[in-house]
Design a protein around this nucleic acid. Structure first.
Length: 217
DNA sequence: GCCCAGGGGGCTC
DNA sequence: GAGCCCCATGGG
């Protein structure tokens, strides 16, 4: 049993609470989860502000605008044409199956909910898990490139481990607690932003430096 | 100028 | 199933 909790504790003691997800509603979390795909959060905030200003941050309102108009508003988040299509795919699904009410979708058990989210065009594993954890507040661990990099440098997983095995590894070694999952993922991202970046060794102040096996390449 | 960011889809072999 | 390519803005 890998002691992931001690990794969590070290990060929590160093960085404290991260207050994720920064959104006012579950639907805003879903939108942010799509917009932040391969994009820094700062750019996503600009796009979210535009949507808020136009009062488009509800499933119904967003479903009623065309992808082209949506793309103009989310431009700062990058990949705006693809992301506009993805947002529309989500709202089309919510409208057709749930009358634009996320609560109905979120009543489903995690496995069923995850399968359904993955069936929506533009929602892959990380986006689905982010929605389940941060919007539905159910325990589905979110892993990402940072998680892989940090855990590889700690010697816990292989460098080329894939999404699902990495997710299973995390869930197997942690209590099934959505609050813990929430904070842990946010802390890993925080660590990634602070010092565990690509092509850069962990900094000397890194709370995990004692166990780090980074090759510093 | 270069690298990278809170990924995912599509295509080829 | 692995290995590419495409999508695109903005900060460091």
């Amino acid at each position: 049993m890998t002691d992931l909790l001690s990794v969590y504790t070290a990060l929590y003691q160093r960085f404290g609470e991260q207050h994720w997800w920064p959104a006012e509603t579950p639907f805003e979390v879903c939108v942010g989860a799509i917009l932040t795909q391969s994009t820094s959060w700062g750019n996503v905030e600009k796009a979210i502000d535009n949507l808020k200003r136009e009062e488009l941050l509800t499933s119904k309102a967003m479903d009623e605008v065309c992808a082209k108009d949506l793309a103009v508003l989310i431009r700062p988040a990058g990949y705006f044409n693809s992301k506009a299509r993805k947002l529309k795919a989500l709202t089309t699904h919510l409208s057709a199956s749930y009358g634009d009410d996320l609560d109905f979708l979120f009543k489903k058990p995690i496995d069923e909910l995850r399968e359904e989210l993955l069936s929506v065009w533009g929602i892959g594993p990380e986006t689905a898990d982010s929605i389940i954890l941060y919007a539905a507040e159910k325990p589905s661990f979110v892993v990402d490139a940072y998680t892989k990099r940090v855990f590889f440098r700690l010697g816990l997983v292989k460098e080329d481990i894939e999404y699902e095995p990495l997710k299973r590894f995390c869930e197997k070694n942690l209590p099934k607690d959505p609050v813990l999952y929430n904070e842990f993922h946010a802390l890993i991202v925080r660590l990634g932003k602070d010092c565990c970046r690509k092509s850069k060794p962990l900094c000397k102040e890194c709370p995990l430096s004692s166990g780090c096996k980074a090759s510093f390449k």
